[in-house]
Simulated scan of single mutants.
Amino acid sequence: MSDFSVEANGLTKYFGNFKAVDNVSLAVPAGSIYGVLGPNGAGKTTSLRMMLGIIDPDEGTSRLFGGLKPQSVRGRIGYLPEERGLYPGMKAREAIAFMGALRGLDWSEGRRRAAAFMAELGLERVIDEKIRKMSKGMAQMVQLIGSIVHAPDLIVLDEPFSGLDPVNQERLEMLVRREQARGATILFSTHVMAHAERLCDRIAVIARSARRFEGTVDEARALLPMQVRYTPRESVDAAAIATCLPTNAEHSGDAWHFTIDDKHVEPLLARITASGHGVSGLSISRPALHDAFVHIVRQVDAGFDADATGDAIEEASA
């Protein structure tokens, strides 16, 4: 048995002359919730499809549950593609049972599990409603349940939160946690950081076709300095207070705002205490995953812009 449900090594894919995925490697620990994050068009969907063996890479390999033949373990996988699709004339219960049957689940057991899932999510009122009569978000929930009704060991969800209202987003998060508690591994792609921050054990950031970060959410947030808001107890000359604060400190109203590295937090507190200005308010917080994501992507974009400028100068001088 492998410690990883998914192991991708050097996955690369061209569409014509365009390199859609560039040497992407990642390992998804068994039983974890793993997020593949990136802007639209970054290569997330193509990467997931290569990992699952839906499309072949031009370079690199993918292993599922330790094996090199993804198609041989398809019954252990639940996959929600980015492009949603259900038979509009089917009722929700039958649509879920049908998707389970495609993965070897007995039809009657599929119908029973469909009813149980829908009841758990508070959706029993639409269990016998036809797909064509459902809202887009409700139909998406039906397809999601159909993707996991056979109790797969690996669940792969491509942009699962897209198109869902806040209530159904909460239902989806509950399902993800439920399936992890059952022992499943969940791998999903998204460009909405809030879901990843709440759910993921580990993340990978893909930007400009390549993996730019891999690690925990806290490790991603640690790429940026701490954010500090300090309010002195007594109103004193701003210049006097500024002498004990970092040079990037900005004064707004009664408070000061600045960033600081972890290693400088304790010396800062010592300086504030020694200054005698006192503390009316002090908050020190780590930036959100959203901030770290934007930081990573902007660094990549800046590198590409610099390369493009350099190429243009070189061509002009040739």
Results as ranks from 00 to 15, higher is better:
Met1Pro: 10
Phe4Glu: 09
Ser5Leu: 08
Val6Phe: 15
Glu7Lys: 11
Ala8Arg: 02
Leu11Met: 09
Tyr14Lys: 02
Tyr14Pro: 01
Phe15Gly: 05
Asn17Tyr: 12
Asp22Leu: 07
Asn23Gly: 03
Ala30Gly: 08
Ser32Tyr: 09
Ser32Thr: 06
Ile33Gly: 14
Tyr34Glu: 01
Gly43Tyr: 05
Thr46Asp: 13
Ser47His: 05
Leu48Trp: 04
Arg49Gln: 15
Arg49Trp: 06
Met50Ser: 09
Met50Val: 04
Met51Val: 14
Gly53Lys: 13
Asp56Glu: 07
Gly60Lys: 01
Ser62Tyr: 05
Arg63Gly: 00
Arg74Asp: 11
Arg74Thr: 13
Gly75Met: 10
Arg76Met: 13
Ile77Gln: 11
Leu80Trp: 01
Leu80Asn: 08
Glu83Leu: 11
Gly89Asp: 13
Ala92Trp: 01
Ile96His: 07
Phe98Trp: 13
Leu105Tyr: 00
Leu105Thr: 05
Gly110Tyr: 09
Arg111Pro: 04
Leu121Gln: 12
Glu124Trp: 14
Ile127Gln: 10
Lys133Ala: 11
Lys133Met: 11
Lys136Met: 10
Ala139Tyr: 07
Ile145Ser: 13
Ser147Gly: 14
Val149Gly: 07
Ala151Gly: 04
Pro152Arg: 11
Ile155Trp: 14
Val156Asp: 05
Val156Gly: 12
Glu159Ala: 04
Gly163Leu: 05
Gly163His: 03
Leu164Val: 08
Asn168Leu: 09
Asn168Ala: 02
Glu170Arg: 14
Glu170Gly: 07
Leu172Asn: 12
Glu173Cys: 06
Leu175Gln: 02
Val176Lys: 12
Glu179Phe: 15
Gly183Tyr: 05
Ala184Glu: 00
Ile186Arg: 01
Ile186Cys: 04
Leu187Ser: 08
His191Thr: 01
Met193Gln: 01
Ala196His: 04
Arg198Lys: 13
Asp201Gly: 06
Arg202Glu: 08
Ala204Asn: 05
Arg208Met: 03
Arg208Thr: 06
Ser209Asn: 12
Ser209Cys: 12
Ala210Asn: 05
Ala210Trp: 12
Phe213Ala: 00
Glu214Pro: 06
Val217Cys: 09
Glu219Pro: 02
Tyr230Met: 04
Arg233Ile: 03
Val236His: 12
Asp237Met: 05
Ala240Thr: 10
Ile241Asn: 04
Ala242Pro: 03
Cys244Ile: 15
Leu245Asp: 00
Pro246Lys: 04
Glu250Gly: 03
Asp254His: 03
His257Trp: 00
His264Pro: 00
Leu268Ile: 08
Leu269Ser: 04
Arg271Glu: 06
Thr273His: 14
Ala274Glu: 15
Ser275Trp: 05
His277Cys: 06
Val279Phe: 00
Val279Gly: 02
Ser280Ile: 06
Leu282Ala: 14
Ser285Lys: 15
Arg286Ala: 11
Pro287Gly: 02
Ile296Lys: 11
Val300Gln: 11
Val300Ser: 15
Asp307Asn: 12
Asp307Gly: 10
Ala312Glu: 04
Glu314Gln: 10
Ala316Trp: 00
Ala318Gly: 15
